[in-house]
Nucleic acid binder design. Structure first.
Lengths: 347, 347
DNA sequence: TTTGACAGTGCAAGCGTTTACATTTTATTT
DNA sequence: AAATAAAATGTAAACGCTTGCACTGTCAAA
């Protein structure tokens, strides 16, 4: 029992370019052109096509388009986790800038695992990402090779280095943290401790810890004098780490935290032991997220322009895709925000 | 100058299934099977293929696969915004559950705009999403029609209704807020005000406001007695709205906020005017995000199990894809968390 | 009128997979 | 050893789109 081969009603599937072409009485090529390069098509035809498109609710199948055109106007981003407000914020700005340029964002998260990131890169490329946004420089050799071999434009955000394998947009975590530590020293603190996010596969965290140690050495302290606790990003972990530190025999007078979330946890712990901040203990953060202002007392921290970074990352990537050769990237300025959590060292 | 047509080196593009087949000395069909249904292939061959795949760093082109197989193991989610911690959190859990089942997540954000959401739905479907996670019930007729016409499984999260057009996993915003409002009344408050997120296209926000008004009526108040300010989600907006309310002639003794972020803003405003919370003013939130515990004083709020919701949403969707007919969805329980921001009404 | 030049449109190849169906190989039974 | 069944593999046709090339018609210049 033969059926007409064309125009068969594939029940329940999206309308195709054929459906549109047929309904509009033109060829698929014309439909495609009306959509992708409107000025190659005479207005009358174009309108007819557009109306049909609207009527049928047609949207080009992405996979098919990617295969035929070899580009997707899609940019992939791999962030460690969505739950960290700083990434969420930067990514939102990133996405907005892409949107303004008719690009779409594809997000994956790596949970701070190098191995997972390799896989995500492959996945995003297989999905047709034209370019990639990555966080920080710490990643496998394979990853860099892959990007290089396939000539995929990539930009690193949240870290900046002049001599980097890929252009970067970010700030110098080291100098920012050194400056903050100097300020802590100027307040007379000599017993300091560090609470940091895990530093493996996280160059931002590592740089910050390193900077504190360097500044401390300049201030005459030994590396061994400074307790360091590494713990994953969360208020409770910050509180636990601080609890540990505050029960040691030589209690620190200042705790320098790798980010605001850990710092807020430390604040919470101090409060629970009745230790007054900043009179008896100073605490600093990093990032300047909203939490930092709300904390009691408000946090002294390093302000990072996350939104700006996302926006610039997008711009840089789009420029790279436009073939504008080797752009160096862009360094952003951070600044210390002094609030009440940092005070003079107690006698 | 003729070149061999096969095995030509398309410079800089990802390895294809042909490359793998050739290198492994088998047909593309075998490679495909080794990857997708390993037990249809004899172990020896399978290993050979797998090794080649690893060596070449091959990942199947997603678009091509979607086109040929008509399913993608991809689920799309459209959330209002990533910047809202509650969605970020729920989505993370959603993603984790999908990952456990070899599914991938595709995220889009609608910025609370119905029109944009329609477009995003089309985009996600064009990109091959097998099913969709949506937030709340408020959306265009078109959207529902589209889902229905194409038989796309969808689940609504963050709201629950028995008689919904699609299964939902969430909680009853109205009864939760009514309960909270009752508690406020029991503390003796009679001059209350509302700060809410914009209620257009946001049934959660609308339900919460409605619930306050209902509870207030039950307590003998007129609708007109209760000032309502709608303002977008941000601490500063919450502060501004509270500032406005606190300068009115009949200053409220309790401000009920649609979410924790607005409530924290209100808290901030009160503090800046030297108004003591809860002695002179009570403030409540909704969601119970971390901010609520950190706030000073800590917020009385409604605890919502965001992670649980994300996880269940994923489960429900996967069940639907498995063809398990009309599942009703799942209602989650919320509970009020009493903290210090709610106190007895001042004389 | 003829001739180009050119704008608008159509034809059909190819993008990288999956999967019926066909074919070959292997194992089992006689 | 032959016959048969079952398992493994190969062949080739879709899937829905873009785009080089070919074609048709229009208009201006010769």
């Amino acid at each position: 029992m033969p059926r007409p081969p064309t125009n068969r009603r594939r029940s329940f599937s999206a309308p195709t370019i054929d459906d549109v072409a047929q309904a509009a009485g033109v060829s698929t090529a014309t439909v495609s052109r009306a959509l992708n390069s409107p000025d190659q098509v005479v207005p009358e035809t174009r309108n007819k096509v557009m109306q049909t498109v609207a009527k049928l609710g047609y949207a080009p199948n992405f996979g098919a388009r990617a295969m035929a055109a070899k580009r997707t106007n899609t940019i992939g981003a791999i962030i460690p986790t969505m739950e960290n407000a700083i990434f969420a914020r930067g990514l939102q700005a990133f996405q907005e800038e892409l949107g303004r340029n008719q690009f779409t964002l594809l997000v994956a998260s790596s949970s701070y695992q190098t191995k997972l990131e390799d896989e995500q890169i492959r996945t995003l490329l297989a999905r047709g990402a034209d370019a990639l946004l990555l966080i920080g420089f710490a990643r496998s050799q394979t990853a860099y090779q892959m990007l290089h071999a396939r000539q995929i434009p990539a930009v690193v955000a949240w870290s900046y280095r002049e001599d980097a394998p890929v252009p970067s947009v970010g700030f110098d975590n080291k100098s920012a943290m050194r400056e903050l530590t100097d300020a802590v020293f100027e307040h007379g603190h000599r017993r300091i401790a560090i609470i940091s996010a895990p530093t493996t596969d996280n160059d931002r965290a590592a740089d910050r810890v390193e900077a504190v140690l360097q500044a401390a050495r300049a201030g005459g302290l030994e590396r061994a004098d400074i307790p360091i606790i590494e713990t994953p990003y969360s208020i409770d972990n910050g509180a636990r780490a601080a609890t540990d530190l505050l029960h040691r025999v030589k209690r620190p007078t200042a705790i320098i935290c790798g980010n605001d979330v850990l710092a807020v946890g430390a604040l919470k712990a101090a409060k629970s032991f009745g230790i007054k901040v900043p009179q008896e203990l100073s605490i600093t953060g990093f990032d300047d997220i909203e939490l930092a202002q709300i904390a009691d007392p408000p946090l002294t921290t390093v302000h990072v322009p996350h939104r700006e970074m996302g926006r610039l990352g997008a711009k840089l990537l789009l420029e790279l895709l436009d073939g504008q050769g080797a752009l160096p990237g862009r360094e952003l300025k951070t600044r210390i925000v002094f609030r009440e959590s940092l005070g003079p060292a107690p006698k």
